[in-house]
């Protein structure tokens, strides 16, 4: 049974590799990403068990029933099937799927609402909108806007409101939360909490043309007091964002990090509520269906 040993070693290596190295998705820094990492671990373990069962069965069968090991006169029997065997091969997958369905349904409801422990917080609202191939972050309360980088306070529920100025993009900060699409005709809502200060990698994950590979942004999580002084600093030093300037920013291309006072929400509001392009006829309420409140 040398082959079996090889299989076990193979999976040991894979598991060791998974556990040992710091894959971003499995190295969460906030409650949302943490939930997802747990779900992923549960599914990986379940699936490794399933795969090992199949592999072991296959290996045993191949060793036991290969022609070279058998009497040349051996005639394999005709077997139609067996009720009990079939109950097992239907029942076991159903149990596994039922278990994973429960995990999936619970966790998807959890990550679609405000993170646990932060439900009562008034969230900090940041509009994140994409254009080819940049991210624009508007802070309506603080009345500032940044390009390709965003600062957030730690241990505070941040509500990103996502939309696009053109192509569909997907807002993703692997260590803090899963993805959500940013589209031009509706606003999506994503709640994020960073529990550790630090710099995080964020990007658009949905292919949107020539500049896609570089369509990244930086997330910096700071303690609340440092965040406040950062805001104050920008309010005092940055240039105001005019409509002409913003039109210029929307041109396809790449930009570095930029900072402005004022936001483009004043002259080019997000597609939500009364500004939704599909807000006609009977379906007024539908556009807010993704809203967590």
């Amino acid at each position: 049974m040398k082959l079996k040993g090889v299989y076990i070693a193979f999976f040991a290596i894979i598991s060791g590799f998974l556990a040992g190295c710091e894959l971003l998705v499995l190295d969460p820094k906030g409650p949302q990403a943490d939930k997802l990492a747990n779900v992923i671990w549960i599914s990986i373990i379940t699936m490794i068990v399933v795969t090992i069962v199949v592999l072991v069965m296959l290996t045993i069968i191949l060793f036991k029933y290969r022609a070279s090991k058998q009497d040349p006169d051996y005639k394999p029997p005709h077997i139609e099937g067996n009720k009990y065997v079939e109950i097992i091969i239907v029942g076991v997958p159903i149990l596994i799927v039922a278990f994973l369905s429960v995990v999936s349904v619970i966790s998807v409801h959890q990550v679609e609402t405000a993170p646990e422990g932060y439900e009562t917080d008034e969230p900090l609202v940041i509009y994140a909108s994409s254009s080819n191939w940049k991210w624009h972050f508007s802070y309506p309360e603080q009345d500032i806007e940044t390009v390709n980088y965003v600062f957030i306070p730690t241990n505070q529920n941040v509500e990103f409101r996502l939309y696009s100025h053109g192509t569909i993009s997907s807002f993703w900060i692997p260590q803090l939360a899963g993805q959500k699409y940013a589209m031009s005709d509706m606003t999506n809502y994503l709640n994020i909490v960073a529990e550790e200060p630090g710099e995080y990698f964020g990007r658009n994950a949905n292919f949107n043309g020539e500049g896609f590979a570089e369509n990244e942004f930086n997330v910096t999580a700071l303690p609340a007091d440092e965040f406040d002084s950062w805001i104050e600093d920008i309010q005092n030093t940055a240039e105001p964002l005019t409509e002409e300037k913003f039109e210029e920013l929307l041109e396809p291309g790449h930009l570095g990090h930029m900072t402005f006072t004022g936001t483009h929400q004043d002259f080019m509001p997000a597609p939500e509520g009364e500004n939704s392009p599909h807000n006609h006829g009977k379906s007024d309420s539908e556009d807010d269906s993704g809203h967590p409140h």
Partner: peptide
Amino acid sequence: YVDRGVGSGPA
């Protein structure tokens, strides 16, 4: 499209 795709055109 009948309700949500009207845009600025006629219904």
